[in-house]
Nucleic acid binder design. Structure first.
Lengths: 205, 205
DNA sequence: AGGCTTGGTGTCATTCATACACGAACGCTA
DNA sequence: TAGCGTTCGTGTATGAATGACACCAAGCCT
C-alpha cells in the first residue's frame, strides 16, 4: 500500500490500463496521485506482489500482467521498484473501493514523478507491443468483434485505420476462431464474434 | 561477488556478450558456472551495481549495458535479481583476472539455473533487438566496415545474408557516416570505414 | 417503407524484400 | 612483374507485402 515503508527494500508498482472511450489508467486519489504499489513480502514473488497491489488498492484481480522495468528507488527505501503494466476490459473491473479513478495518460501529469515515468514507459511499451504481439484482445471480452478490436488499435495508436487492411492484417497474424454467434449491438447489421485460439485467461499468460 | 549474501536483498547480474568467431558470453569458472553478479549496496543505482559486478569479476568497464528483466530470487536472499546484458568488442576487453572464460551460449548449459535462464533470455533479446535497433555496432570498434557489421548479424542471426541486400538495409535504417579511411586487412581490396553518426560511447547509452 | 448505422468484402498501385553476377583493389608468390 | 587468391563494392528484375479506395448487407428505428 505504501511503497516507502522502511522495512521493504523492494516494491512492485502497477500501471493498470483499460479502454472506455479512451485509453485510461488507474490512479489512486488523495494527495499526489499514485498508482497501486506494494512492498515485497517475505516469500512472495514479484508478480504476486504486483497482483496484491492491485487487489489491495482496488479489489482487482485476474488481469493480464507483464513486467515493464525495474527502477531505482531513489535514496532510502524502497531501493528498487519493479514496475508492471496490466490490461483489462473495463467491464470486468468492479472497483471495490472508493478513492480510485481513471485518467487519460496523455493528459498533464497527475502522479508523483516516479509513477508518472512508469505510466509513460508503459504507454510506449503498449503501443510498441501492439505492432507485433496479439495483446490488444486483453482489453476485450473473451469473444469480440473485429470492429471492437480495430477500435482498440485506433485508440492506442491514435490514428484511424482502414477497415479492410486491418482485417487482412489481423487475420494473417492472429490465430482467430470465427464463432457462430454475432453481437447485435444497435440499429445495424450484427457483427461476427471471434476468439483467439488457445487464449487462456489473461492472468495465466 | 556473491549474490546470496544474506544482507543484500537485491542483486544485479550481467550477461556480457562479445564476438570472436562466434557469439560468446563471460562465464566465471569454479564449481557451478556463474555470470558476474553483485549485491546492491546502499546508495548505489542498479546500473552501477551491474557495472560493479563486471568490474569486480573481470576488471571490465565502459560497456554497453541494458536492463533485461528482474527475476525472483527464489526463497531467501537475494529476493530479486535484476538481470542486465552487456555488449562489447572483444579486443576492448582486457580481462584482468583469471577464473573467467568465454562460452558459446548455444552449447549445453554450464551455469546455475537462474543464470542460464538470464543468458537464454539475453540471447533472445539480442537477436530480436538486432532487427529494429542499431546495436550490432557495439561489438565493433568505433569505426567499422560494412563487412564486419554483416558478420555480426550473421553470427547472431545464425544465417548468412546477401551482401547487397544487407548494405541497402543498413544504409536505409542506420545513420552512417562514411569516413575517408579504409581498413587494409589482407591480400584483398581495402574496405571503407564507417561510423555511426552521433554514436556516443556505449556506456553512455 | 425508408433511412440511418455499422458490418463485411476485393482490386489495383506502390513499396519493400529477395535473388542474383561481376569487375576492382589489394597482397602474396612464383 | 604477372598471375592468383581474396574480399570489396555495386544494380536490376521478380515476387511479396502494404496502402489506398467504394459499395452492398443487415439490422433498428421512426
Amino acid at each position: 500500500m505504501n511503497d516507502t515503508k522502511p522495512s521493504a527494500p523492494i516494491a512492485a508498482a502497477v500501471a493498470l490500463f483499460t479502454i472506455r472511450e479512451r485509453l485510461e489508467f488507474l490512479r489512486l486519489e488523495g494527495g499526489q496521485g499514485r498508482i497501486p504499489s506494494a512492498p515485497l513480502e517475505e516469500g512472495e514473488t514479484l508478480e504476486a506482489c504486483a497482483r496484491r497491489a492491485l487487489w489491495e488498492a482496488a479489489s482487482i484481480e485476474d488481469v493480464f500482467l507483464e513486467q515493464l522495468y525495474t527502477f531505482d528507488g531513489g535514496r532510502g527505501h524502497p531501493r528498487a521498484i519493479v514496475a508492471y503494466y496490466a490490461l483489462a476490459p473495463h467491464d470486468r473491473l468492479r472497483i471495490g473501493r472508493t478513492g480510485v479513478g481513471w485518467v487519460d495518460p496523455t493528459l498533464a501529469p497527475t502522479l508523483v514523478e516516479e509513477h508518472q515515468i512508469i505510466v509513460g514507459r508503459a504507454c510506449e511499451r503498449l503501443a510498441g507491443k501492439l505492432e507485433y504481439a496479439p495483446i490488444a484482445y486483453q482489453f476485450l471480452a473473451e469473444r469480440f468483434t473485429l470492429g471492437e478490436l480495430q477500435t482498440v488499435y485506433e485508440i492506442i495508436g491514435r490514428q484511424t485505420l482502414d477497415k479492410r487492411n486491418f482485417r487482412r492484417r489481423i487475420r494473417a497474424s492472429w490465430d482467430l476462431v470465427e464463432t457462430r454467434d454475432a453481437r447485435r449491438g444497435g440499429p445495424h447489421r450484427p457483427a461476427r464474434l471471434y476468439r483467439l485460439r488457445d487464449a487462456r485467461p489473461p492472468w495465466e499468460e
